[in-house]
């Protein structure tokens, strides 16, 4: 029985159980027996029903729109519980890092919440973080523990190759910040590239847009790391369409789709919105006929397996697991 220790233990928070299930299936293991729920006074309670002593613990918690803080506390309590229960190593698997957009002091006395979250995770006892398509890769520097920033790009590339083969496409970045991500995909696919410059007067509000590049009579693929209220996407799509694109498709890693996103998408001139399942989508797939979902659980599962076995994770950045 002694050699049973230090196996992968996958714990799942309440935010995205289906992704955790997919990852566990992929790894061929069971999700560890834990239960987290809220007391009637809304404090979170985590019950552990399985030994994690000397095990390699992975805790998967995504961000369910609306319950960000509850999910975060749940994750912190779970990490802390595993720490006190003598886990050998605790890895937080956070496909969509919360507060990733609050990563700089852009105004006086604005909080750098992403840094705070990083500190909190470490305080709780996390030894390693696996995340995906960080809004700003500099967030990795907020941690004093290793952070593996996975890329959805290989999965996205495969989706484009499989579904848009033979069409005249152009990759469009909806803002200057995402130019690098978009050019990388454009290069890999050997396609053209265009960029939209936008002015943003207030958060969650979008201003005027200017398109740089040629999209006439092409299928424009808008590439971004996250789609929240989708105001940007809808406006970008309209801008691209105005400039003569034949069809506009959006490919986004984190489909947060909060607020009126679904209505905005349904009313927009986008023909398809492709997101990954890093964020729980709930009934949004039913409510939005344009929504397509790429499963990233193989990537996450493979990253977990490689982390556990001490193999290179960077291999995954160039190859999508089949």
């Amino acid at each position: 029985m002694g050699d049973m220790a230090n196996e992968i233990k996958l714990l799942s928070g309440n935010s995205h159980p289906s992704l955790a299930k997919a990852v566990a299936d992929r790894l061929g293991i069971e999700i560890a027996k834990t239960m987290s729920l809220n007391y009637s006074n809304q404090e979170t309670s985590v019950t552990v029903g399985e030994s994690v002593r000397d095990e390699d613990v992975f805790i998967l918690q995504s961000t369910a729109p609306g319950d960000i803080n509850d999910g975060l506390m749940e994750l912190l309590i779970m990490i802390h519980a595993c720490r006190t229960a003598s886990a050998r190593r605790i890895t937080a698997v956070i496909p969509n890092f919360p507060y990733a957009r609050q990563d700089k002091k852009d105004k006086s006395r604005a909080p750098i919440s992403a840094k705070l979250i990083a500190n909190m995770l470490q305080t709780a006892g996390c030894n390693h973080v696996i995340t995906m398509d960080l809004h700003a890769s500099q967030i990795q520097g907020f941690f004093n523990v290793p952070v593996d920033n996975l890329y959805a790009e290989p999965s996205v590339l495969r989706w484009i190759r499989e579904n848009l083969a033979g069409q005249e496409t152009v990759i469009v970045s909806p803002d200057a910040g995402g130019a690098k991500r978009a050019t990388s995909i454009a290069d890999r696919l050997d396609r053209g590239f265009a960029l939209i410059h936008k002015e943003r007067p207030r958060p969650n509000v979008v201003g005027r847009m200017v398109l740089v590049g040629d999209v006439v009579d092409k299928v424009a693929i808008l590439v971004d790391d996250m789609a929240d209220t989708c105001g940007t996407l809808a406006k970008a799509a309209a801008t691209v369409k105005e400039h003569g694109a034949r069809e506009v498709i959006a490919v986004v890693t984190h489909g947060i789709l909060s607020g009126d996103a679904i209505t905005t998408l349904n009313n927009s001139c986008l023909s398809q919105i492709v997101v990954t399942n890093t964020v729980p989508l709930g009934d949004k797939v039913q409510r939005c006929k344009k929504l397509r979902v790429i499963d990233v659980s193989p990537t996450i599962a493979e990253a977990i397996r490689r982390t556990h076995n001490g193999e290179s994770v960077s291999f995954l950045f160039t190859h999508a697991p089949v």
Binding site: P65, G66, R109, S113, N204
Partner: peptide, 15 residues
């Protein structure tokens, strides 16, 4: 709160 549910905080006075 932002529409995602993330807390938004700005301190307006100098501290």
């Amino acid at each position: 709160k932002f529409s995602v549910g993330e807390t938004r905080c700005e301190i307006k006075d100098s501290v």
